[in-house]
Each structure stands twice: as C-alpha cells, then as structure tokens.
Amino acid sequence: MTTTLAEQAVADFVQEWSTAEERGDHRALDDLLAKDFVGVGPRGFVRSREEWLARYSTGTVRNLSFAVSDLRIRCYGETAVVVAAQTQRSVNGDADASGAFRFTLVVVRQDGRLQLAGLHLSPNAAPAGA
C-alpha cells in the first residue's frame, strides 16, 4: 500500500471540488471539505468550513461559471499542495464577484479519502511589465 498521493488522484479531486463550487453544491462540498477546513478569500477574509458552506446553502453566492486551469501539484506523503489558476463569473448577494484568481489548495488524505484542508485565493493580476 502506498503512502503518497498520486498526482492524478489529486487532479481528479480538484476537478470534483471545482465542479461542486461551480454548481454551488454545498452537499458535495460538505463531503469534500475537511472538518477543520479554513478558506482565505481574495481580500484576506477568513472563512471556517461552516461559513464556506453557507455561501451556497443560503444562496448568497451563485456561480455562472467556474473554471480551473494551470494545475501544479506537489505531493508530500499524505498531503498535496496545488497551485492553479481560476476564473469565475459569480455574484455574491447583489455584487458581481467575477474575476481571475490564483489559488493554493492543501489536499490531505484523512479517513481513507481525499479532503480539502485549506484554500487561499489571490487576485490574478498581469505579470509586471506585461
């Protein structure tokens, strides 16, 4: 039995997570997020697992599109760090929440399955000199 996460398994997990985010599927996300999940938003706010799920269960956040690209996966035993790009067309309440972002995910194997332990978003600005 291997004790390392395979990159393909992590890539598949990220696809499952991004599909749940796009659909606003709080039930699927409930299964994917670790019990101690912490999410950091693009303006530095911190959300607990319950707050992250409530964005969708209350209908506050709605996504029209949510696409992930440029996955860079590094595996460390039972943990993987994923850096990728994301674009979304979304609303948060009445405000436009669309944008392009970079994110870092911390994916862990707990209780025999992959779970998302942490997420950090940053605005994806053009590189200097571009």
Rank of each mutant, 00 (worst) to 15 (best):
L71N: 04
H26N: 01
V14G: 06
L71W: 05
R47N: 15
A6F: 06
L114A: 08
A95N: 06
G59I: 09
R74N: 05
N63D: 04
T60H: 09
E21T: 01
G118S: 14
R72P: 01
R23W: 00
D30Y: 02
I73V: 13
R72T: 06
A85C: 14
R62N: 05
T104C: 09
E22H: 00
L53A: 05
R74I: 04
A9D: 14
V81H: 12
N124F: 12
R74P: 02
L114W: 08
P42I: 11
Y56F: 11
V82G: 10
R27N: 01
A34K: 02
G129A: 10
N63K: 02
R74V: 08
E22T: 00
L105H: 03
D111H: 02
A85H: 14
L29C: 01
V14P: 05
K35L: 03
R72Y: 02
G112K: 03
V106G: 00
E21A: 05
S69T: 07
T58A: 06
R89Q: 12
G24F: 00
G129Y: 10
N124S: 14
L71Y: 02
V46S: 15
E22M: 01
L5F: 09
A67R: 06
G118R: 11
Q88A: 11
M1D: 12
T2S: 15
P127L: 14
V107G: 00
W52N: 10
F101S: 03
P42T: 13
T3W: 07
L33H: 02
V40G: 09
V10K: 09
V81D: 11
L33C: 01
T58Q: 08
A126M: 12
P42M: 13
A67I: 04
M1Y: 08
A54N: 05
Q115H: 08
E22P: 00
H120E: 15
L32S: 01
T104G: 03
